[in-house]
Simulated assay, not measured.
Amino acid sequence: MLDAFTAIPAAVLRNLADMLYEKRKIVALEVEGIVKQLTVAGDHMIK
């Protein structure tokens, strides 16, 4: 089982707080993809 910091790369977490909407939007889509992959893999119980 993964925790949130190993499942989502540090660069992605940093970019979630970017001032530009477009960058935040792109990163949010990346996070969505990571969550979907973890769900499919059955590793959706992130601590």
Rank of each mutant, 00 (worst) to 15 (best):
M1N: 07
M1W: 06
M1V: 11
M1R: 09
L2G: 00
L2P: 15
D3R: 14
D3V: 07
D3A: 08
D3Y: 11
A4N: 09
A4R: 15
F5T: 12
F5N: 12
F5M: 10
T6M: 09
T6N: 10
T6R: 14
A7C: 09
I8W: 06
I8N: 06
I8Y: 07
P9Y: 01
A10V: 10
A10M: 09
A10G: 04
A11R: 12
A11L: 03
V12M: 08
L13H: 06
L13K: 14
L13N: 10
L13W: 05
L13Q: 15
R14F: 14
R14H: 11
R14Y: 13
N15I: 00
L16M: 15
L16E: 06
L16A: 05
L16K: 02
A17L: 12
D18W: 02
M19G: 02
L20K: 15
L20S: 06
Y21S: 06
E22T: 07
E22K: 14
E22D: 08
K23I: 12
K23C: 00
R24L: 04
R24I: 04
R24N: 02
K25R: 15
K25N: 07
I26G: 09
I26F: 09
V27M: 10
V27S: 04
A28F: 04
L29V: 06
L29Y: 06
L29P: 00
L29S: 08
E30K: 06
E30P: 00
V31M: 05
V31D: 06
V31H: 02
E32S: 04
E32L: 10
E32Q: 10
G33D: 13
G33Y: 02
I34Q: 03
I34T: 12
K36T: 05
K36M: 08
K36S: 07
L38H: 02
L38S: 01
T39S: 07
T39R: 11
T39K: 11
T39M: 05
T39H: 07
V40T: 13
V40D: 07
V40A: 14
A41M: 09
A41C: 02
A41D: 11
G42K: 05
G42T: 01
G42Y: 08
D43K: 12
D43H: 03
H44C: 08
H44Y: 13
H44V: 05
M45W: 08
M45E: 13
M45Q: 12
I46Q: 02
I46V: 13
I46A: 01
I46S: 01
K47Y: 04
K47W: 03
K47M: 02
K47T: 03
